[in-house]
Simulated assay, not measured.
Amino acid sequence: MALKNASPWPAAEPGMSAPFQLHREALADIAADPSAIFALLDDHRRLSAHMEKPSLMMAGATMKTELDSQRGQAVGSVIRMKGVVLGVSLYVEEVVTHHEPPFRKTWETRGQPRLLVIGPYRMGFELSPAATDTRVRVWIDYSLPTGLTGRWLGKLLGKVYADWCVTRMARDATNFFNKG
Rank of each mutant, 00 (worst) to 15 (best):
W139E: 01
A49T: 04
M16T: 15
T62M: 05
V95A: 12
T146F: 00
M63K: 08
T62F: 04
L41H: 06
R104H: 15
Q112G: 02
T149E: 03
S143N: 11
S35Q: 13
L27E: 11
P34A: 10
T132L: 14
E93P: 03
P8I: 01
M16D: 15
G83Y: 07
R71M: 12
S89F: 08
L127Q: 09
T62Q: 12
P129G: 07
S55H: 05
P34I: 06
P19F: 01
S7P: 01
A31G: 03
Q73I: 03
P19V: 00
P102I: 06
A12K: 04
E126R: 12
R104T: 13
R71E: 13
L90V: 07
A6I: 11
R110K: 15
R135C: 02
S35Y: 04
K53R: 15
P120E: 14
W9M: 08
Q21H: 10
F20V: 00
G87D: 12
V92M: 13
V88A: 12
E100K: 08
A6N: 15
G150P: 00
P120H: 12
A36F: 04
G119A: 03
T65G: 00
L115N: 09
E13N: 13
E108L: 03
Q73C: 07
M51V: 03
R45H: 14
A39L: 04
M58K: 08
A74T: 11
F38S: 09
A39N: 06
G111I: 02
L86G: 09
Q73R: 15
G150V: 00
L67T: 06
W9H: 13
S35P: 03
A74E: 11
P54A: 04
S55C: 06
A36R: 13
H23W: 04
S69F: 05
L90Y: 03
W152G: 02
K82N: 15
M81R: 15
A131Q: 14
T106M: 12
L116V: 04
M63Y: 09
R114W: 03
G76H: 00
W139I: 00
G119L: 01
K64S: 14
W9Q: 10
R114A: 11
I140W: 04
P8Q: 05
P129Y: 04
T149K: 09
V88M: 12
A31L: 06
Y91Q: 12
G83R: 12
A32D: 04
T106V: 15
S143T: 07
V84Y: 09
P8D: 08
Y121H: 10
V138T: 05
G76A: 00
L47Q: 09
M81P: 04
S69N: 14
T97Y: 08
M57F: 09
A31Q: 13
M51Y: 10
T97W: 07
L148R: 08
G147F: 02
T62L: 07
H23E: 08
V136N: 02
A6L: 14
L22I: 02
P129H: 10
F38Y: 11
A11D: 11
T106Q: 12
E66C: 03
A59Y: 11
A61Y: 06
L116A: 05
R137W: 00
D141F: 03
K82V: 02
M57A: 11
G72C: 09
T109W: 03
D43P: 05
M16A: 15
R24L: 05
P19R: 06
E94V: 01
I37A: 01
K82S: 15
H50M: 13
R71H: 15
R104A: 13
T132F: 10
L56N: 12
I79W: 14
M51N: 08
T149P: 00
